[in-house]
Each structure stands twice: as structure tokens, then as C-alpha cells.
Design a protein around this nucleic acid. Structure first.
Lengths: 203, 203
DNA sequence: AGCCCTATTGAATGCTCGTTCAAGAACCGG
DNA sequence: CCGGTTCTTGAACGAGCATTCAATAGGGCT
């Protein structure tokens, strides 16, 4: 319950500000006023603004399960349903933000056009972590999915569905765009599950 | 062959700069040096920077078929193949830019967090136009697709696949992410076409 | 108390940005 | 060739930006 240290306060404030305003549109002054710190304190901990971004991306990477995946999977055991539970969590975030929600990683990935290699690598790692969580579900689904299915590709496709749905929902300010994307993915899974069942049934 | 007028030169330069560097990272000075114009000339035509953005988005909207769709569809008549021909064009763009390609509209949609209503509407209209082109293909495919299929949703799903694939390909600097997304969408279409054929065959 | 190292303060710096505007050039109808 | 309008020039402005740093405070050790 003790006050978090300076570094943590900065990272948490920057996390939210980068998410709401984007990286370039967030000034150091924004972070300072939000954290009630002075410029020197920030620059004592971080060499520069980009290093704050790096710390934010590391925080997303390290908090993936704790902050996003585990809450979404609470009370959901079926591996396939876990995938859609995670997507449902994003739907909730969209509603909670009046359809202004944007995936923090996706937004940063598209905003930073000439990103430093370290930053780009962290963006990629964040995507890989997310896809890894889905991949775990697909592995757990075992032979309910067709044999020979490229599970890595399918896991990436789930991320694609989320990112595309979030992007369109925000642009149109309408969850329907997200819902229809998830619905299409659901059809995709249903067809895959049906195909696997058809092969398994006639033993 | 005569030199294009000032407005056109500005819009064309801004189109490329916004695409390469993003909106916020492109300065008026960038546009001026690229067009060899002076500040006064730009401000004589446009009230401000945002109006340049609006003109750029209108140009994308108005040039959708001429600059993107028609070239992609040249020599491709089958409506379903036209969808994948359009995606193939994006694949080519990704390769042409060494996997740094980003959809101009998608990038702007995620970069502009607190966008003016006019700008947001134009972003939405651009998406709608793109989806409309896909929808036309789906309609042309007629009863090759299952009856009762939500074609609007499927068309949006194609956009989702493109945006998600482009985003991941760029972040990982690897076309494979785009290819696997398209491949998953191909599977999706194959399964839909097979389902429709199964229903039609046993007359 | 005295010392040293770490942490904080907040004004100052230099830069870039979008935008303005008075002055002048180019154009055109009569 | 004149008068009026449109377009261009390019310096100037003020605001906001990331970053620096000398001065100061705090905390732990002897």
C-alpha cells in the first residue's frame, strides 16, 4: 500500500497517456503534471522520452497475463472459449471507452513509423506474447482441431481479427464492426471444429 | 503534361509524407521543401495543416478504384479471385517497401486519437469504400457463397485481414505474417464455398 | 555532527512547429 | 497600359517541445 516508486509512477502514467493520446502527442510535461514530478526526477531515472516508451512496452510485455489474459480467462476452462473470452474482454474495453478504444500496442506499432530497433523489437515481442497465449489455447484444444492445421497461423489470425475489429470499431464509433469480426472468426472456428469432428467420427 | 496546380502538388506531397512519416511527424516545412513552395502559397490554398489532411483523405476516397482497385483487378474476372488479387497487391506493396508498408488509412486512423469529426468521418468513408469494393465481389459471387451469409460482415472481415496482416508484417518486418493471414482467409473462403456447394449439389 | 552519495527542484536553453502578414509579383479584363 | 484581383514571397512570431544543469534537499553511515 506504500506509494510506488518514481519509476513505476512514471511508467504507469505514460502507459495511460500513450494509450489515450499516442506517443508523439504525449509531452514530457504531460507525464510530469500527471505524476506531480519535476523534469529532473524523470531525467534522473530515464535518459530520454524514448526510454520511457521502452519501459512502457516492457511493462505491457511483463504484465500480459496478470493484467489481461488471466482476468479474461477467469472461470473459463474450455480452450476455444478462452480465445473468445479474451476477445470479449476487448469488446468490454471498447464499450467502456465509448468506442474510442485502441489496442495500445497496435496503435504504437502504426504510429511509430521510423521506430528505433529496440522499440520495434518490443512491439514485436508484445504481439508474439499475445499470439503465444492464443497458441496455448489451440494446443490445449488438441484433436478437436483438424490435424495438420497451422496453429501458429491461426493464432496470428486471432490477433488480426482483434486488431482489425478494434480499428474499425473505433473509426466508425460502433462496436458492431468488432462484433461482426468476432462472429466471422467464430464461424471460422466452427467450420474447423466441424471438419475435425467429421474426420474423427467415422472411425 | 502541364505542371499540376499548387493544390494538387501539396496534396500529392502530403499523401506520401503522411504515409511515410505519419501526420504528426510531418511538418508544414516538410511539405514546403518537397513541393518547392513557400508557406504563404500553402496557406493561401489551405486554412491550416488539418485541411491538408482532409484533402489527402478525400483524394484517397476519390482515387480508390483508379489507383488501387482497378489495377489490382486487371486481368482477373472471377469475383472471389478479385478479393485475393487486391490482397496480393498489398503483398506487393509490403515487399516493395521492405516490409515497412503501412495502410495509409489504417495508420492515420490509429495515429489520430482525438480526431476532428470531419477527419474521422473521412477515415470511416475510406474504410467503407474499400469494404464496398469487396462487397461488390461477394455479390458477384452470387450463390457460390452460402445463402443467408452476412456478406457485409465478410467484406469487413477481408479488410480486417488486410489491416491485421499489414500491421503484423510491418512490426515483425516479415511478409510471412501477411501471407499466413491471407492463407487463413483463403481457408475461410474455401470452407464457405464448399458449404454452399454441398447444399447446392444434392438437388 | 559531519560526510557523501543519491534524489529533487525548477528555471533556463535551444530548437521546431504551425501560422501570420506586409510587401511585392503576376495575371487579366477593358 | 491601367486598375484590380489573385497569388507568391520569406521573414517574423509565439507557443510548445525535449532536454540540461547548477543549486538544494534528503538519507544513511561513521
Amino acid at each position: 500500500m506504500s506509494a510506488p516508486d518514481v519509476r513505476t509512477r512514471i511508467v504507469m502514467a505514460a502507459m495511460e497517456l500513450f494509450w489515450v493520446k499516442g506517443y508523439n502527442s504525449t509531452s514530457i510535461a504531460d507525464i510530469l503534471s500527471r505524476t506531480q514530478l519535476n523534469a529532473g526526477s524523470l531525467y534522473h531515472v530515464f535518459p530520454g522520452k524514448q526510454d520511457v516508451l521502452i519501459a512502457v512496452l516492457e511493462a505491457y510485455r511483463d504484465g500480459l497475463y496478470e493484467n489481461l489474459v488471466d482476468p479474461a480467462w477467469e472461470g473459463v476452462d474450455d480452450p476455444v472459449e478462452r480465445i473468445f473470452a479474451l476477445l470479449a474482454r476487448y469488446r468490454w474495453l471498447i464499450l467502456e471507452t465509448d468506442c474510442t478504444y485502441g489496442c495500445p500496442i497496435g496503435s504504437l506499432a502504426l504510429e511509430l513509423h521510423e521506430a528505433d530497433p529496440v522499440v520495434r523489437e518490443l512491439l514485436a515481442v508484445n504481439f508474439t506474447g499475445w499470439v503465444g497465449a492464443i497458441l496455448r489455447c489451440l494446443d490445449d484444444a488438441g484433436d478437436r482441431l483438424p490435424p495438420g492445421l497451422d496453429k501458429q497461423a491461426l493464432a496470428e489470425f486471432v490477433l488480426t481479427t482483434m486488431e482489425g475489429g478494434v480499428m474499425q470499431a473505433r473509426t466508425h464509433r460502433d462496436v458492431g464492426y468488432f462484433d461482426r469480426g468476432v462472429s466471422a472468426l467464430r464461424d471460422h472456428f466452427d467450420m474447423l471444429l466441424a471438419r475435425a469432428a467429421r474426420r474423427a467420427q467415422p472411425a
